[in-house]
Simulated scan of single mutants.
Amino acid sequence: MGAAVLLFVAVVGAILFVASLIGGRRSNWFVAYAYLLPVLLMLTIGLLYPALLTIDQSFLQEANDSKVPILNLQIPFANLPDYTLNHYQTIFTTSGQLTVLRNTVLWVVLTPFVATAVGLVYAILVDKARLESLAKALIFLPMSISFVGAGIIWKFVYEFRPDQGEIKQIGLLNQIIVWLGGSPQQWLVESPWNTLFLIMVMIWIQAGFAMTVLSAAIKAIPDDIIEAARLDGVTALGMFRFITLPSIRPTVVVVLTTIGIGTLKVFDIVRTMTGGNFNTSVIANEFYDQSFRSNNPGLGAALAVLLFILVIPIVVYNIRQLRAAEAR
């Protein structure tokens, strides 16, 4: 750690020293490019090059693959690999991979909208309340817990023990069911309901983030607009529909897209609570399984590429919305 700090200080000092020797406007350009070059170099080595290798791996023909490659050029003095679409075909044709895609769609459709809706309603209800700070702290608290920690907590909540004799339930949800006269359930086994129970964990975490950001946006609405609406006799529902929601629309979009991107990449919760078993796997978890446990790096790379492709439209839309908001 100390060596890294010293290296950083030395590089910055060398850049500034050389820039002072150049002088004039050229020194400003030199400093700009000198600081930009290490960043571009690290992005190339740490991001761009691995991404290109992953894309290449996703198209490679593997030794145990019996299907015909899409490219098999026979060039003298060259040993070119065979390329194929088999891995992508597997993703969209096999039942197991289709289940993974279905689960991912459920995560992306439900989590951002439900978490944002819960955060928005909560932000409106506690706005300017007496215990506003305490109420916000309670719902924001899960944000301070890692996804792994949240998964462990909720795994205990869903814990199941057979309803036999004196066996006591240690899972909170099943204990409540027993108190009400019902029978304990295996919440994380039955598909597709188990996926919905996993999604609840992500909503529990992200609702605090949505509430915090949206609450700040609500407080930024000018008071004169709110007072004018009240003088005009606008009801509470009308205030939300015609004043609050249009005023914070750009923030709502940012929250939705941010949670959506995080949900697309969800791995920790699934890995901690079910390990992807019982038809609960998602793309990120399946990528890990195929790459490191099933010895199928080609399919794992194809899943990684698919995940990257799915994230791009959300990022582009988010950037456009931010630029549109700034233009206003």
Rank of each mutant, 00 (worst) to 15 (best):
Val109Trp: 07
Val109Leu: 06
Thr111Phe: 12
Thr111Glu: 12
Phe113Asn: 05
Val114Arg: 00
Thr116Ala: 02
Thr116Pro: 00
Ala117Asp: 08
Ala117Gly: 09
Ala117Lys: 06
Ala117Glu: 09
Val118Cys: 04
Gly119Met: 04
Gly119Phe: 03
Val121Asp: 10
Val121Tyr: 06
Tyr122Val: 06
Tyr122His: 04
Tyr122Trp: 10
Ala123His: 02
Ile124Asp: 08
Ile124Val: 12
Leu125Ile: 13
Val126His: 10
Val126Phe: 09
Leu131Phe: 15
Leu131Lys: 12
Glu132Trp: 09
Glu132Tyr: 11
Ser133Pro: 14
Leu134Asn: 11
Leu134Pro: 08
Lys136Asn: 15
Lys136Ile: 15
Ala137Val: 14
Leu138Gly: 06
Leu138Val: 08
Leu138Gln: 09
Ile139Gly: 00
Ile139Asn: 01
Phe140Thr: 05
Leu141Phe: 12
Leu141Ala: 13
Pro142Asn: 03
Ser144Thr: 11
Ile145His: 05
Ile145Glu: 07
Ser146Glu: 09
Val148His: 00
Val148Gln: 04
Val148Leu: 05
Gly149Leu: 03
Gly149His: 03
Ala150Cys: 08
Ala150Trp: 06
Gly151Arg: 00
Gly151Trp: 00
Ile152Cys: 10
Ile153Val: 12
Ile153Thr: 09
Ile153Cys: 08
Trp154Glu: 01
Lys155Ile: 13
Lys155Asp: 11
Tyr158Met: 10
Glu159Ala: 14
Phe160Asp: 08
Arg161Asn: 10
Arg161Ile: 12
Arg161Phe: 10
Pro162Arg: 08
Asp163Asn: 10
Gln164Asn: 15
Gln164Tyr: 15
